[in-house]
Protein backbone atom coordinates (compact mmCIF):
# COMPACT_ATOMS: atom_id res chain seq x y z
CA UNK A 1 0.00 0.00 0.00
CA UNK A 2 1.83 3.07 -1.21
CA UNK A 3 1.23 6.24 0.68
CA UNK A 4 2.32 8.32 -2.30
CA UNK A 5 0.30 9.94 -5.01
CA UNK A 6 0.19 12.96 -7.22
CA UNK A 7 -1.64 15.81 -5.53
CA UNK A 8 -2.91 16.93 -8.94
CA UNK A 9 -4.71 13.66 -9.54
CA UNK A 10 -7.91 13.01 -7.62
CA UNK A 11 -7.99 10.18 -5.20
CA UNK A 12 -9.05 6.97 -6.79
CA UNK A 13 -11.70 4.74 -5.44
CA UNK A 14 -11.41 1.29 -4.04
CA UNK A 15 -14.27 -1.15 -4.15
CA UNK A 16 -12.69 -3.21 -1.46
CA UNK A 17 -9.89 -2.69 0.98
CA UNK A 18 -7.65 -5.25 -0.59
CA UNK A 19 -8.34 -4.67 -4.26
CA UNK A 20 -6.40 -2.27 -6.41
CA UNK A 21 -8.30 0.67 -7.71
CA UNK A 22 -8.56 2.31 -11.07
CA UNK A 23 -7.97 5.99 -11.66
CA UNK A 24 -11.00 8.11 -12.29
CA UNK A 25 -10.49 11.09 -14.56
CA UNK A 26 -11.24 14.44 -13.04
CA UNK A 27 -14.48 15.31 -14.74
CA UNK A 28 -15.48 18.88 -15.54
CA UNK A 29 -17.99 18.73 -12.75
CA UNK A 30 -18.96 21.80 -10.81
CA UNK A 31 -20.89 21.82 -7.58
CA UNK A 32 -24.65 21.68 -7.70
CA UNK A 33 -26.00 24.47 -5.63
CA UNK A 34 -29.24 24.68 -3.68
CA UNK A 35 -29.26 28.43 -3.29
CA UNK A 36 -29.03 29.19 -6.96
CA UNK A 37 -31.84 26.79 -7.63
CA UNK A 38 -29.67 25.04 -10.18
CA UNK A 39 -30.17 21.35 -10.32
CA UNK A 40 -28.52 20.64 -13.61
CA UNK A 41 -27.00 17.24 -13.87
CA UNK A 42 -23.33 17.35 -12.98
CA UNK A 43 -22.95 13.69 -12.32
CA UNK A 44 -19.66 12.44 -13.64
CA UNK A 45 -20.20 9.24 -11.79
CA UNK A 46 -22.71 8.05 -14.34
CA UNK A 47 -19.80 7.76 -16.76
CA UNK A 48 -18.14 5.17 -14.57
CA UNK A 49 -20.35 2.10 -14.64
CA UNK A 50 -21.17 0.56 -11.29
CA UNK A 51 -21.03 -3.18 -10.89
CA UNK A 52 -24.56 -3.26 -9.48
CA UNK A 53 -27.18 -1.33 -11.44
CA UNK A 54 -28.97 -0.31 -8.27
CA UNK A 55 -26.00 1.30 -6.50
CA UNK A 56 -26.11 5.08 -6.28
CA UNK A 57 -22.88 7.09 -6.36
CA UNK A 58 -21.44 8.95 -3.40
CA UNK A 59 -21.81 12.72 -2.93
CA UNK A 60 -20.13 15.11 -0.55
CA UNK A 61 -22.36 17.64 1.19
CA UNK A 62 -21.42 21.20 2.14
CA UNK A 63 -23.73 23.30 4.29
CA UNK A 64 -23.81 27.05 4.85
CA UNK A 65 -25.13 27.52 8.36
CA UNK A 66 -26.14 31.14 7.90
CA UNK A 67 -25.72 33.96 5.46
CA UNK A 68 -22.24 35.40 5.40
CA UNK A 69 -20.52 32.15 6.36
CA UNK A 70 -18.75 29.65 4.13
CA UNK A 71 -20.12 26.29 3.19
CA UNK A 72 -18.61 23.65 5.46
CA UNK A 73 -18.27 19.95 4.73
CA UNK A 74 -21.09 18.22 6.58
CA UNK A 75 -20.79 14.63 5.39
CA UNK A 76 -21.64 12.30 2.55
CA UNK A 77 -24.63 10.51 1.13
CA UNK A 78 -25.71 8.38 -1.80
CA UNK A 79 -27.99 9.67 -4.54
CA UNK A 80 -28.72 8.80 -8.16
CA UNK A 81 -28.10 12.34 -9.47
CA UNK A 82 -27.44 15.93 -8.44
CA UNK A 83 -31.09 16.89 -8.06
CA UNK A 84 -31.79 14.02 -5.69
CA UNK A 85 -28.48 14.50 -3.91
CA UNK A 86 -29.53 18.05 -3.02
CA UNK A 87 -32.85 16.87 -1.73
CA UNK A 88 -31.36 14.00 0.23
CA UNK A 89 -28.85 16.42 1.70
CA UNK A 90 -31.65 18.74 2.75
CA UNK A 91 -33.51 15.85 4.38
CA UNK A 92 -30.44 14.38 6.03
CA UNK A 93 -28.20 17.25 7.01
CA UNK A 94 -30.64 20.07 7.82
CA UNK A 95 -33.19 18.33 10.03
CA UNK A 96 -32.36 20.74 12.84
CA UNK A 97 -31.96 24.06 11.06
CA UNK A 98 -28.27 23.48 10.36
CA UNK A 99 -28.26 25.42 7.13
CA UNK A 100 -29.58 27.99 4.68
CA UNK A 101 -27.76 26.68 1.62
CA UNK A 102 -26.36 23.35 0.44
CA UNK A 103 -23.77 22.28 -2.11
CA UNK A 104 -23.42 18.70 -3.24
CA UNK A 105 -20.43 17.51 -5.20
CA UNK A 106 -19.83 14.09 -6.74
CA UNK A 107 -17.21 12.57 -4.47
CA UNK A 108 -15.10 11.49 -7.42
CA UNK A 109 -14.97 15.06 -8.77
CA UNK A 110 -12.88 16.24 -5.85
CA UNK A 111 -9.13 16.45 -6.32
CA UNK A 112 -7.28 16.22 -3.04
CA UNK A 113 -3.71 16.96 -2.06
CA UNK A 114 -1.47 14.05 -1.22
CA UNK A 115 -1.48 13.42 2.52
CA UNK A 116 2.12 12.31 2.44
CA UNK A 117 3.27 15.47 0.74
CA UNK A 118 2.81 17.19 4.09
CA UNK A 119 6.51 17.89 4.22
CA UNK A 120 7.01 19.40 0.80
CA UNK A 121 3.55 20.60 -0.11
CA UNK A 122 3.01 22.67 3.01
CA UNK A 123 6.58 23.47 4.02
CA UNK A 124 7.08 26.74 2.19
CA UNK A 125 4.92 29.03 4.37
CA UNK A 126 6.59 27.75 7.55
CA UNK A 127 8.92 30.35 8.96
CA UNK A 128 7.86 33.22 6.72
CA UNK A 129 7.00 35.36 9.72
CA UNK A 130 7.23 38.54 7.68
CA UNK A 131 3.86 37.68 6.15
CA UNK A 132 2.25 38.33 9.53
CA UNK A 133 1.62 41.67 11.23
CA UNK A 134 3.14 40.42 14.47
CA UNK A 135 6.56 40.33 12.77
CA UNK A 136 6.73 44.13 12.71
CA UNK A 137 7.51 45.19 16.27
CA UNK A 138 9.13 48.57 15.70
CA UNK A 139 5.83 50.12 14.78
CA UNK A 140 4.26 49.11 18.11
CA UNK A 141 2.47 51.97 19.78
CA UNK A 142 1.99 53.91 16.55
CA UNK A 143 -1.71 54.62 16.14
CA UNK A 144 -3.85 53.42 13.26
CA UNK A 145 -1.08 51.23 11.88
Amino acid sequence: MSPHGNPEVPASSAGDVESSAAKVPAGPAGPASADSGSTSSVSTSSTSPTPDRSVWPLWEVFVRSSRGLSHVHAGSLHAPDAAMALRNARDLYTRRNEGVSIWVVPADAIAASDPDAKGSFFESPQGKDYRHATYYTKSEGVKHL
Binding site: H4, S13, S20, A21, S45, V55, P57, L58, A107, A112
Partner: peptide, 15 residues
Protein backbone atom coordinates in the same frame (compact mmCIF):
# COMPACT_ATOMS: atom_id res chain seq x y z
CA UNK B 1 -15.86 1.32 -7.26
CA UNK B 2 -18.69 2.77 -5.29
CA UNK B 3 -16.61 3.80 -2.32
CA UNK B 4 -15.12 6.82 -3.99
CA UNK B 5 -14.86 9.39 -1.28
CA UNK B 6 -13.63 12.87 -0.58
CA UNK B 7 -11.39 11.32 2.00
CA UNK B 8 -10.51 8.30 0.02
CA UNK B 9 -8.00 5.51 0.44
CA UNK B 10 -4.55 5.90 -1.02
CA UNK B 11 -3.70 4.66 -4.49
CA UNK B 12 -2.65 1.07 -4.73
CA UNK B 13 0.61 0.51 -6.61
CA UNK B 14 0.98 -1.93 -9.48
CA UNK B 15 2.37 -5.33 -8.50
Amino acid sequence: MAAQNLQSVPDQPAV
